[in-house]
Structures are given as structure tokens and as C-alpha cells.
């Protein structure tokens, strides 16, 4: 096949219209407008798939839901004890709140990646038999992770109150920060989901990668405590500015630092755009590679 295969052009859009033309293409973006429209039209699918997946993991039973909150609390407790021992018992309640809030935000990212990495390769039947925007599959993983994040955040609220951390309108900053985190995570999830099609062992590396990433993110410690010689670690870590902003709001009830917020936005948008272009331009190829 020649590399200059004719560019596929579609007279109307790909999924619904009544006139379709399919021509060869290797890599190329479909018309963005209609792609996004079709994606949006099927948003219910992403939500329903997320809900169905959670249900099939038994998170609709009482114990399943309890586990969903007990598990992160236990882990937060374990990490707290660990860090406290390393710090010879100098950590206080506010640190527990800091750690818990940061950990829960981090689990959102981790869950998205872990569910998302399988989303395309395990969508085999659906992909081979239905034409729909494949980006819905990783997005659905992000939705599922968000559904798991919400109850854990509700658990965090009493901890925040009991610890006596500041409460004020500045806490509303958590909403845009969460939004940035969602955009960033959606991008990362699309990357691993598409990557898994080409390299089937990404799934196996992922748990190690997310563990290391957790340690490199100011969650088990405060960003300000990081010694100078490890500064680079935070500056190459896209999650660092996002979590630093998140912690600034949680810990001090202050407006997040402007430079961190700008950096966080830049990372999130950059990763999202690169990932979306990568995913969408390759998705028609997924069916022949499953």
C-alpha cells in the first residue's frame, strides 16, 4: 500500500448520517466537529457503561459500597502511620487531613488509568460490531473513577471539620482544580488505552508506574519540605502543580498559587490535546488490531 493513500473524506459525518463513504486512511483526524457532536450525543453511553461496570464489580451491594470507602480510609491510615513513624511521631491531625485529601484525589487518577487501560482492548465485541466514537471507552473509565471518588470525598468532609482546618469561600477553588485534574486524567487515560492496543504489557507496568508517581507527588509529604536536590522531581511531574494547588486550598484555606495553577492548566490542556489527537486519529485502526 502506498503511503500517500488518498485522504479519507466523508461527505457527512461518520456515525449517523445516511450517506457514508469509507476510504483508506492510516492515520488522520475525522472532522472534529461531528466527532465531538457524536461523542456528546452518546454521553449517556459512557455513564451507563461506567455504572454497569461498577455494578458488575458488586459496588451496588451494601458491602461493596462500604468497601469503596473503607479501603481508601484504611490506606490513608496506613500511610499516615508509616510517615509518622519515619518522622518520629511529629505529624499532627492537619497532616492526616492533607494526606487523606491528596490521596483521594490521587486515587481518582489511579483508578481512571487502571480501568481505562483495559477499556479499548476489552471492548472487543462492541468495537468489532458497532461504529461509535471509541473515545467513549476511556472516558467511561474516568466517569467510573469519578463515581468512586465522590463518596470518598464525602468521607473526607467530617475529617476536615474535626481537624479544624479553615472553612471559607476559598474552598470553592477545589472545583476548578478538580476540573483540571479531570481534563488531565482523561488525557492520560486515552493515552494508556490507545497504547495498550499497541503494547499489551502497559497494563502490567501501570501499577508500578502509578506507585512511583504517588511517591513523586507531594501527598505523603508537604511540597515545601522537599529538599532542593529533589526539586526537579516536582518540576517534571505534571501532577505536582495540580496537587500542590489542591493542598493549598485544603490545608490553608488559601487561594492556590497562581504559578502552580497556570502550570497545572498548561499540563492538563497539553496532555489532553496530544492524547485526544493520538487516540482519535488511530481509533479506526483499533478494530483490525484487536
Amino acid at each position: 500500500m502506498s503511503t500517500e493513500a488518498p485522504q479519507r473524506h466523508r461527505l457527512e459525518d461518520e456515525f449517523t448520517s445516511e450517506h457514508h463513504v469509507y476510504e483508506p486512511h492510516k492515520v488522520g483526524l475525522p472532522p472534529i466537529g461531528s466527532y465531538v457532536r457524536e461523542l456528546w450525543r452518546r454521553r449517556e453511553f459512557a455513564v451507563e457503561l461506567a455504572r454497569t461496570n461498577l455494578r458488575s464489580q458488586h459496588f451496588n451491594t451494601v458491602f461493596g459500597q462500604l468497601w469503596l470507602v473503607i479501603n481508601p480510609i484504611l490506606l490513608a491510615g496506613v500511610y499516615f502511620v508509616l510517615v509518622d513513624i519515619l518522622r518520629s511521631g511529629s505529624r499532627g491531625d492537619e497532616f492526616f487531613a492533607h494526606l487523606m485529601a491528596g490521596l483521594f484525589a490521587y486515587y481518582f487518577v489511579q483508578q481512571s488509568l487502571q480501568q481505562g487501560v483495559r477499556s479499548v482492548v476489552s471492548g472487543g465485541r462492541l468495537i468489532l460490531n458497532t461504529a461509535f466514537p471509541r473515545a467513549l471507552l476511556p472516558i467511561s473509565a474516568v466517569v467510573a473513577a469519578f463515581m468512586r471518588f465522590v463518596p470518598t470525598f464525602l468521607i473526607y468532609i467530617p475529617v476536615h471539620l474535626i481537624t479544624g482546618l479553615p472553612i471559607g469561600p476559598e474552598l470553592l477553588w477545589l472545583i476548578p482544580i478538580m476540573l483540571i485534574l479531570v481534563v488531565f486524567t482523561s488525557g492520560m487515560t486515552m493515552l494508556v488505552a490507545a497504547g495498550q492496543v499497541y503494547f499489551r504489557d502497559i497494563k502490567n507496568f501501570l501499577p508500578y508506574a502509578t506507585r512511583i508517581w504517588l511517591y513523586a507527588t507531594p501527598i505523603l509529604y508537604y511540597a515545601r519540605e522537599v529538599p532542593d536536590r529533589y526539586d526537579w522531581m516536582l518540576s517534571v511531574n505534571p501532577l505536582a502543580p495540580i496537587i500542590t494547588s489542591w493542598s493549598a486550598v485544603i490545608d490553608k484555606g488559601s487561594t492556590p498559587p497562581l504559578d502552580d495553577m497556570l502550570l497545572a492548566c498548561a499540563w492538563a490542556l497539553g496532555v489532553f490535546v496530544v492524547a485526544a489527537v493520538f487516540f482519535v486519529s488511530r481509533e479506526r485502526e483499533f478494530a483490525v488490531r484487536l
Binding site: 445516511e18 463513504v21 469509507y22 465485541r125 468495537i127 460490531n129
Partner: peptide, 30 residues
């Protein structure tokens, strides 16, 4: 599958006029 727009052609062209419903091999998207 290629008529359904699921598998991209390697060469050539498929033109379809109408709303397509697929029932491909048993177990369709299930």
C-alpha cells in the same frame, strides 16, 4: 464489517446510503 464502517478499507472504497444496523456474528457487541 467493512460495509458497517467498522473496519477501514486498506484500499478501495465503500459507499453506503442509509442508516445501518449491524448484526454481525453471534454475540454482537454483547
Amino acid at each position: 464489517r467493512s460495509i458497517a464502517g467498522i473496519l477501514p478499507p486498506t484500499a478501495g472504497r465503500v459507499e453506503v446510503n442509509g442508516r445501518v444496523s449491524t448484526l454481525l456474528a453471534l454475540g454482537v457487541g454483547f
